[in-house]
Design a protein around this nucleic acid. Structure first.
Lengths: 140, 140
DNA sequence: CCGCCCCTGTTTACGCCTAAACTGAATGAG
DNA sequence: CTCATTCAGTTTAGGCGTAAACAGGGGCGG
């Protein structure tokens, strides 16, 4: 058997990988990658967001966002609206249609994935993760 | 506030991303990417493993493993030993040296990262993740 | 007004990762 | 024995992601 932290981390990796895989497969129904979905979901919830803020929210670099937006804009799902030195991102009608379909579908799938845990257990899991996250923030 | 499963998943994503980032930074001291470390660690623990089995263990495709091994072999950290139609992977002395340094360092870092949680809490987290993982396996 | 810095976005090189097509060796059915 | 299948490994196209260099508009001190 493995020592504690390593075992915990490996389990976290496996669960994460598995859930990510499920989400990815489900999103193929909407012709979206997980990264593209994240962009659509965030922009749909916060229209007019700038690229830098979007990058911060999704925990990726602005360079990455730029490429993702290129592809999504090519597909006509969103547009860049220059304003000052920033771009405001807004969904097109096509983009909003995808948003309206994909977001509820993804929420339903997450609910199904987490259904092995009771509401209490999910809250417990969130609490443990929050504690971990706080510890990480404080430490340097 | 967010509904349950989505909130849980977002927290999981943030924690995962954060830990991954820490590991990645720490591994720069050994000139290894996280993926490369995973290969070295697995091969070091299980010398003579084949590429396909390695791929299964690390949850990636054999095509990916092939590329990773190319780079690590170029750097002289491991070699492919053909046997039948498989390749047995073994570390070179240089590879074993990296293994001997990097693995304990990574274990120590994981222990530090998880230190905000008590031993009990870590066990609790593992239990919740295990339950989640089992549910995932059963469901289709 | 001018020059400087800063901030946003873009580009490029490179590694990770997948899916899918391909190579070739081992196996085994007829 | 021979042909087909199977299975490990390789290759390729393409998306994701980073770091680092670059472009240029805005704002500010002098």
């Amino acid at each position: 058997m493995q020592r504690g932290p390593v075992a915990t981390w490996m389990r976290l990796v496996r669960v994460f990988h598995h859930v990510e895989g499920r989400e990815t497969v489900a999103l193929r129904a909407h012709d979206l990658s997980l990264a593209q979905f994240d962009v659509i979901a965030q922009v749909g919830r916060d229209e007019g967001i700038t690229q830098q803020v979007l990058a911060d929210r999704l925990l990726v670099t602005k360079g990455n966002i730029c490429q993702l937006l290129d592809r999504l804009a090519d597909r006509g799902l969103l547009v860049r609206q220059p304003e000052g030195r920033a771009n405001r991102i807004v969904l097109t009608p096509a983009g909003r249609a995808v948003y309206a379909e994909a977001v509820p579908a993804q929420e339903a799938q997450l609910a199904a994935i987490f259904s092995p845990l009771s509401t209490d257990e999910q809250a417990q899991l969130r609490a443990l993760l929050r504690k971990l996250e706080h510890g990480l923030d404080v430490r340097d």
